[in-house]
Computed example of a mutant assay.
Amino acid sequence: MSTISQALAPLIRVEGAELHYRVGGALSALRGHAPVVKAVDGISFQIRRGESVGLLGESGCGKTSMGRLLLKLEEATGGSIVFDDEALSSLKGTALKSYRKRAQLIFQNPFDAVNPRFTIRRTLSEPLENAGVPASEREGRIISALELVRLPDPRPYLDRYPHQLSGGQLQRVVMARALILEPDFVVADEPVSMLDVSVRAGVLNVFRDVRDRLGLTAIYISHDLALVRYVCERTIVMYLGRIMEDGPTEDIVHEPLHPYTRALVAAVPVPHPDQSHAPLPIGKGAPDPRNPPSGCVFRDRCPRAFDRCARKVPRLRAVGTRKVACHLFDEDN
């Protein structure tokens, strides 16, 4: 395959992916009453090499579960996920270990992501050791990784412990650990949500710079549309385990199509003290995921729902530059 064809070919193909959990405990399961939570419910999309995609939605929409499926931290209960023409479900042993080098996770909370008893040197040495990198090469790789995430003069930090670093410094260490094996694909799970607002911009700038310099394929998980807009060229909007809208981020921001996406755009804070928000154009909070609405899972909150929404699950269809799962865009409307 030519270099151009490789660049345009999808690195990741997701087809009908499902991740279902039985809840209620062993006794409920024995009685046959254990409800099922469909964290990811039959969704499909592709990600090109070098593309940066945001997974956007409220808490509980399934975006973190989708990220865990992409990293094979959870086994899919249905559908398929293919990475670089190899099905994740088939990866075992040496092949799985090789995949772990190519796909890495940047955790949400840097204080929970590292062992408080490990120095920074040991924290960053561990993945190199697991990958079989010779001891003589580890120090140089560690320094290079810390410089990559713009931790200035990194040597004095190597023998410090996590509690001796600020939140922003520690998140850069967590990013360096994810990047130290030179992965092809990174999932960033709300990497700045636990940081002070004053340091978020610096960490986001590092993420964008590293992604562009290394040509990484990236998934950025967030509930904050403003952050997704800053770091992602494309956005996938999720709700109760399903995709509502998928398309270029700027198109979604300027002209949201799905009623749920419109509500997310309307919820973005207005940076003016005298300008107030209009009421959000959606109803009550999200329903119980153990018993979602029939048909379109968003219909009980949607201001434009009609009879068909209760009877039929809308399929994801192409609408201009985007794909939208909404009966308002059915061909017979």
Rank of each mutant, 00 (worst) to 15 (best):
I180Q: 00
Q164M: 10
R213D: 03
R208Y: 12
S198W: 06
R141I: 00
Y157A: 04
P256T: 14
R200C: 13
V270A: 11
P269Q: 12
R155G: 03
V197G: 02
G241Y: 10
F185V: 06
M244N: 00
V203C: 00
D196L: 12
Y260K: 15
R177E: 09
V186T: 07
A188G: 15
Y239W: 04
D189K: 12
V192D: 04
V203L: 05
G168M: 12
L264N: 03
L148N: 11
P259M: 06
S166R: 07
R172E: 03
P191C: 00
D189S: 11
G168D: 06
E255V: 07
Q164F: 05
S166H: 13
L257N: 11
D246Q: 11
V237D: 05
H223M: 07
I143T: 12
G202E: 03
E190V: 12
Y260P: 05
R211H: 12
V192C: 08
Q164C: 04
V186Q: 00
F185S: 07
H258V: 08
G247K: 10
L158S: 12
N205Y: 15
D189R: 04
L148W: 14
L151C: 05
A263D: 09
T249S: 13
L257E: 14
L216R: 09
P191M: 01
D159F: 10
G168C: 08
P259S: 06
L195W: 14
R160Y: 08
D159K: 06
R208E: 07
D209Y: 02
E255S: 13
S198Q: 12
P152W: 08
V270T: 02
H163R: 15
L227Q: 13
V210F: 02
A218P: 12
N205I: 11
E190I: 07
E250Y: 09
E255N: 15
R229M: 05
R160F: 03
